[in-house]
């Protein structure tokens, strides 16, 4: 008989409760816009091994929480020529608990879909006289981890209509576009083949409710755009850069595929 040296799979019915109190929805009915594509949406957590899953159940075991803690500290740190910290204008990270579930989001002033990192850069440069931070830099991912941590358990709920709609359509088109010499789309792997092994990897639905994710593979926080970049690179494709308009659109679309799952970041993945 064939011996598959596959990693130990998690119990299909395991449920995620963090610190014994924050209940996380990792499986739910798909949002209406996915009709004909998916009936059920599943967090990437459900596809990881028992050990990796367990690391996310307790903040002391979750290395991503160190990034969140650093993010809380950054929030109170004075940065830039105006002598301000984030605390000067925002009543603590908790006051921004609505941010992670609803971003990317249309920004009226800038007339564009904004990711959390774009918003933070505006506050840094336009309101604090501070340096712009690089997309997916450690500082940015720490901020994101702090913002996600206070929203854990809240349902992802990004708006796909109104002024954000055309960006959403652009992201959707990208999701179904095949890239690279391997000629593969996001959907080929994450919609048609989730649950299947691709070599040693158990394919998930490629949801981003868990971002930023602490990956055991590189032992640091990873942003959604970094993941997108890696996945397109793995199609033997010319990839896009974190922060590019293409990835902002893709982030909005992929986020909307997870509408209804709980915010779970900073999560743990392999």
């Amino acid at each position: 008989a064939l011996v598959l040296a596959a990693p130990a799979f998690a119990d299909e019915d395991a449920e995620l409760v963090i610190n014994g109190e924050i209940e996380i929805v990792t499986k739910t009915t798909a949002p209406a816009h996915l009709e004909g594509h998916l009936d059920e949406i599943l967090s990437g957590w459900r596809f990881r091994s028992d050990e990796t899953q367990a690391m996310e159940m307790d903040d002391f075991d979750n290395p991503g929480m160190l990034g969140a803690e650093a993010g809380f500290e950054q929030f109170e740190t004075v940065m830039g020529s105006e002598g301000k910290s984030c605390m000067d204008c925002h009543d603590g990270v908790e006051s921004l608990a609505n941010v992670r579930p609803t971003y990317p989001k249309w920004n009226d002033d800038k007339e564009a879909v904004y990711t959390i990192q774009m918003q933070i850069n505006d506050c840094l440069t336009e309101r604090m006289g501070a340096e712009k931070q690089k997309y997916d830099s450690k500082t940015m991912l720490n901020f994101e981890a702090a913002l996600a941590s206070v929203s854990r358990g809240m349902p992802v709920n990004v708006a796909i209509d109104g002024p954000a709609q055309s960006t959403w359509e652009q992201g959707k088109e990208m999701y179904y576009t095949r890239f690279g010499q391997l000629d593969l789309s996001c959907a080929n792997c994450h919609e048609q083949n989730y649950g299947n092994m691709i070599r040693a990897d158990h394919l998930s639905q490629g949801q981003i409710n868990g971002f930023p994710t602490y990956r055991l593979k590189n032992a640091q926080l990873n942003g959604a755009h970094g993941r997108f970049k890696g996945c397109i690179r793995d199609t033997r494709g010319e990839t896009f850069s974190p922060g590019s308009p293409e990835f902002v659109a893709l982030e909005l679309y992929v986020a909307s595929r997870g509408n209804g799952l709980s915010v779970e970041g900073p999560s743990v993945r392999n």
Binding site: R178, F179, G180, Q181, K229, R233, D234, R236, G237, E238
Partner: peptide, 17 residues
């Protein structure tokens, strides 16, 4: 096959082919 791809890359570098 060497053509007809969308954004072909240089193997797994992420750079243009």
């Amino acid at each position: 096959k060497v053509d007809g791809f969308n954004r072909p890359g240089d193997a797994y570098t992420g750079k243009a082919a």
